[in-house]
Amino acid sequence: MKPAAFDYVRVASKREALEILAEHGEQARIIAGGQSLMAVLNMRLAQPKVLVDINHAGDLHDLNVERGHLLVGAAVRQVELMDRASLADEVPLLARALPWIGHFQTRNRGTVCGSVAHADPSAEIPLCLVTLGGRVVLESLKGKRREVPAAEFFQGVLTTARRPDELVSEVHFPLADPAVRYRFREVAMRHGDFALVALAACIRDDAVELGIGGVSDRPVLRRLPRGAELPEALNAFAWSLGAQDDVHASAAYRRHLVRELGRQLIEEQDHARAS
């Protein structure tokens, strides 16, 4: 339960981080909040040769609204977003999902981009990013800066489109559309545990974009009809996710949660209170 040995480099800028990634490739890992990576290191599930600490890189702490998106830099912590008073207006889905992420003690250090780069299938931030149609910015020293749609970025359990020399330098969340209602729900063994099923919805008058986390090997988004056709569409969606039995829940229970909570989330009256 102690990490294997690695060189530690504290970088002062994004460029310095990219230089180390260019030199060491997949032998190097970026550490920001460490709330996922340190556990992985402690259990020796990863044994990088070089650990690159970006907490002191001043140009990775940006948190801005630009071109219709909320831009979140690689070193921005989850607590910073939760403390952002305007977030409920800017990206209401994210504002509703953040309290479900771990615990306040882990949100204090955990970063938004770190959760995206880690790509746990049950994680809330990747689910929100996919559901909203957000983008992941990947930068490397030699290659071109890439802006990858979230749905293409997440490729499987802890697997993404990031190349070994690339840094997840920003993620972009589209700003709220006034015609859309945003809702989030999650079921876990205890509040703050990994989600058995997490649901994120963008609800319009005629249709719904429903994102599901925790069931498939990545967040999955589907457009569903409203009204009488919804139950059948939800059932087909639930079966399409390839749910698996594990120690926490059966595949059948996960499908049930997708159908039942999906229906509740979409059909319930508007939240009486902001959550």
Partner: peptide, 12 residues
């Protein structure tokens, strides 16, 4: 700020 000291390195 409350933080897990097992998820931080001493050098940090």
């Amino acid at each position: 700020v409350a933080s897990r000291s097992c998820l931080m390195l001493a050098v940090q």
